[in-house]
Design a protein around this nucleic acid. Sequence first.
DNA 1: CATAGCACCTGAGGGC
DNA 2: TGCCCTCAGGTGCTAT
Length: 271
Amino acid sequence: MPELPEIETIVRGLAPVLQARRIAAVAVRDRRLRTRIARDFAESLTGRRIVGVRRHGKFMLVALDDGHVWLVHLGMSGRLTLGRPGRPDMPHDHVVLRLDDGRLLTYNDPRRFGRLAVVAGDAVAGETVAGLDALSERLTADFLHARSRRHRRTTVKALLMDQREIAGLGNIYVNEILFQAGVRPRRRAGRLTRDDCARLVTATRAVLDGAIARGGSSISDYRDGFERFGSYQSEHQVYDRAGEPCRRCGTAIRACVIAGRSSFYCPRCQR
DNA sequence: CATAGCACCTGAGGGC
DNA sequence: TGCCCTCAGGTGCTAT
């Protein structure tokens, strides 16, 4: 479900509320996420004060007063939402934190592809598949061009989605970025020109900034930390628009599968 | 090492 | 109405 703009929206919403709060109690209802929630997870959080909330790629990072960091990855269907005391239990509420002001922070994840872990502060980079954040100023045309030389045979789409290189982009936004940059998703990374890379970097910033401004994309079940919908789905140019006319030239949008993921592009606008 | 494919889960939606 | 199939915003393991 969530990519960088959705995580960023959640972080921006929750950070002011969580900042300086103490975690009063932690209830783990079901540890069976794809990576099991560790036995000492609740103990690691209980009594800790939250000293900062930030994002790297698709990870939310909650810094604690003992130097540890709580990592949250929402997988495909995870939600982290704030609720009032007395909020009714919902199916798939796997973890519930009670804050010292009485509010509840609930992790809900039907498909259980998410990940929750508490790690030492100096272990965060190694745990978060530490590619360059897609909004980093260090993501430049030169950087992307250099990385494309290391993955010559892969498609540009797979390269942009490779979290070890660039962290934060997923299937929706890579489709949108490739459209805006005028690059076909199946192009081999090794054949990207320096100019292609410059357009891809510009498009990455524009698409992500636009999506964050609209609170992310709510295709089916994404909600932010207060259960609000995003609205960027109405701006999608190609994602899930197979057969519909390109908004720029009117040509029918095509769909195909690349690296196992649905891909959409305009055969005229993208080369 | 680089790359492709599938497995991991549950629920929603379409076709019949 | 209900069954069966396919597909979904992600990642990580395995086999080439």
